[in-house]
């Protein structure tokens, strides 16, 4: 049985004059990284997968005062493989004081028969900024999805900001009008930073209001951030909905620093 273990790493450092330099860019196939701009890195998948049993780890370390944009060239197609164990993808990201991370890879597609675990641990310094988008597609066209479990933990200076698990392809949640309804994809974007901190509290019984659209919502968190969540019939619709939500979230914090140089 051949399974793959890989550890890739991106690390920035301040280059003076407020510029960012990529201090480390360590690929480890199939996790291959390419610098595509002064502060931009693309993930380039080399080889199919991940497959069951694979264990991939990506470290992202954004040094204080620097900024980084991480994207991927194409969607990640998670395939069954022969092993019993699920495929695992761990992304560990730290964003230092005054630093900005924009993380928006293309969607993860859970092909029939796969079993995938995605773990994200995002650690933000008090005044770090982040834009973090995740999109999951329930199987290729017309196919039932494999099983997926995504866990997302974001903390700000050690305090919990967002902790979520997302299950796909489990009997308990499939087709439930409480969970995904009849959607075929689910996505979320965390936009966080000091500009989204809740206002100085006068009456904590009243929460900030969400912005709601068709199949999406921009949800102000209890901490300094907004989560956009969206459901979609397909990846295109999902992206459109997330964008609407992201715009609403950005608009809700006037004066917020840009969360990324440009968005496609």
């Amino acid at each position: 049985m051949t399974t793959v273990t890989a550890r890739a790493l991106i690390r920035t450092e301040a280059a003076g004059g407020g510029r960012t330099r990529l201090e480390t860019l360590r690929s480890d196939p199939p996790l291959t990284l390419r610098q595509t701009g002064p502060r931009r890195v693309h993930l380039v998948s080399t080889g199919a997968g991940p497959l069951r049993g694979d264990h991939l780890e990506l470290g992202v370390d954004v040094a204080p005062g620097t900024s980084l944009e991480v994207r991927s060239v194409g969607a990640t197609l998670v395939l069954p493989g022969l092993a019993d164990a699920p495929s695992v993808m761990v992304v560990r990201a730290r964003v230092g004081a005054g630093a900005t991370l924009h993380f928006s890879p293309e969607p993860t597609v859970l092909a029939a028969g796969c079993a995938h675990r995605l773990v994200v641990r995002l650690s933000l310094a008090e005044d770090a900024n982040v834009f973090w988008r995740e999109e999951i597609v329930f199987g290729r066209h017309g196919e039932r999805p494999g099983r997926g479990h995504a866990r997302f933990d974001a903390t700000v200076a050690g305090r919990p900001l967002l902790r979520q698990d997302l299950l796909v392809g489990e009997e308990t949640v499939d087709d439930s009008p409480a969970v995904h309804g009849d959607a075929r994809c689910v996505g979320s974007t965390l936009i966080a930073g000091p500009a989204w901190a809740p206002p100085a509290v006068t009456d904590v019984k009243r929460e900030r209001r969400a912005v709601l659209g068709d199949g999406w919502a921009a949800l102000p968190l209890a901490g300094p951030g907004v989560q956009v969540c969206a459901l979609g019939a397909d990846a295109v619709q999902l992206r459109v909905r997330l964008r609407h939500g992201e715009e609403a979230a950005t608009a809700s914090a006037p004066g917020a620093p840009p969360t990324g140089p440009h968005r496609p």
Partner: peptide, 12 residues
Amino acid sequence: TARNATEQAAQQ
């Protein structure tokens, strides 16, 4: 009574 600003800050 709503938590006052100082306490809120302390909590943060």
